[in-house]
């Protein structure tokens, strides 16, 4: 890979737990973090981001690794420095090897060896039976601005989607106050909207806020709600070279009392 920089910022965006499950699939790399079985965040780097990508397809390449250590290694020449990256992993129990070479200096090279742990099982939140009830494509910076304006002390984030006007409405409940953000589908920040019947979903604001770091580096966000209330947010990060990386968040809804 030519530069580990974008990967590093993507890692930081999902860094709300100590360690992540690192999974190398034939299609690309995937790092997954879970928080209390309520939020599952993944960083996904498709294989076309790499100049060379080989994964053995007869075994599962899957291990647990500390995000902090990994991102520190990727950043070993300082954040201003672009450095090419090579990653090697031999097999279960062996460390992850990184070779970093800064672009501006010759003959300098860093070998990093990060020890790995056996991966825990990753929660399978997606339910194939639950159908998708709404899909929304938004511009990430505008959505970030919206979330940033929501008072932190609120606990409940209620999302109302309906085919009628206003199509999207976000209600937050604070100590004594109620705030409501209405967004019609004609709005500039809504790039596509599909919803057949009205739906109301409630989440913890705290969980929603965990996507903000990732939103800050993304360009587009796809929000999907399934009939069981599970929200999937897919964030697209576009690099200078037109390649894309993604982050994905599954957020479990609040149940009605």
């Amino acid at each position: 890979m030519d530069s580990g920089k974008t990967l590093c910022s993507l890692l930081k965006a999902i860094q709300f737990q100590e360690s992540a499950v690192f999974c190398a699939l034939p299609e690309g790399l995937k790092l997954t973090v879970e928080e209390g079985k309520c939020v599952q965040a993944s960083a996904y780097v498709p294989s076309d981001n790499f100049t060379e990508y080989h994964v053995r397809d007869d075994v599962d390449v899957m291990f647990k690794i500390s995000i902090a250590v990994l991102s520190e290694c990727l950043n070993i020449f300082g954040s201003g420095e672009e450095s090419s990256l090579k990653m090697y992993y031999r097999g279960e129990g062996s460390p992850l090897l990184l070779v970093l070479q800064p672009q501006s200096m010759y003959n300098v090279m860093t070998d990093c060896e990060i020890s790995t742990q056996t991966a825990d099982s990753v929660l399978e939140l997606r339910d194939e039976d639950a159908e998708e009830v709404a899909k929304l494509v938004l511009k990430a910076p505008a959505f970030l601005g919206l979330l940033a304006d929501i008072e932190r002390s609120c606990e409940v984030f209620e999302l109302n989607l309906s085919p009628e006007h206003p199509n999207v409405s976000i209600v937050t409940y604070g100590m004594q106050d109620r705030s409501c953000i209405d967004m019609p589908k004609s709005s500039d920040m809504v790039q596509s909207f599909s919803c057949e019947s009205p739906v109301t979903l409630r989440y913890q604001l705290h969980h929603i806020r965990s996507i903000m770091k990732a939103l800050a580096i993304s360009t587009k966000v796809v929000l999907r709600c399934s009939s069981n209330g599970l929200m999937l947010l897919q964030l697209k990060l576009e690099k200078e070279d037109q390649r894309q990386m993604f982050s994905e968040f599954y957020i479990v809804p609040l149940l009605d009392d």
Partner: peptide
Amino acid sequence: HGIVKTHFVS
């Protein structure tokens, strides 16, 4: 962006 924010303040 056509967004309407309504605050109901007690």
